[in-house]
Amino acid sequence: MSGLVIKGHPGIGDAVEGEALVAHDNFSARYDLDRIKGVFSRPAHKLYGQSYLGKVLVLNIAKGGVATAWMLNEMKSRDMAPVALLLNYANPIIAQGAAFARFPLIDRFDRDITELVRTGQRLAVDPKAGEVTVLG
């Protein structure tokens, strides 16, 4: 499906490209990640044990408490952040954290984004337009 353009709500951050890491599961920086090693660390998470470094993370909804708002910036400062985050539904905390860190985030796609994209596909993410293009 190379060239497929997926439309979401205009997001936050700058345009980037990267390889997709996809799961129909949720996202909390505080509870799901080992932010030092850069892997998913909550055993019940579908991406448990996988590295998110350099990846465009594609997940269902943002969960968890207020602390996540600081964490994207902290991860980015150590070059230990994903490239971008694509969600079906963001919450205020993840949006605030993305705005603080200038971290690319898009949500509210036409259809379930975790079904439209597969792990390993290369994606172009354009938050300003709210668009994701599958490059191959």
């Binding site: 207020v66 602390a67 996540t68 708002a69 600081w70 910036n73 919450n91 205020p92 905390i93 605030q96 954290g97 705005a99 603080f100």
Partner: peptide, 8 residues
């Protein structure tokens, strides 16, 4: 109020 994370 909404949930306002630290930077927000």
């Amino acid at each position: 109020t909404n949930y306002e994370g630290g930077p927000s």
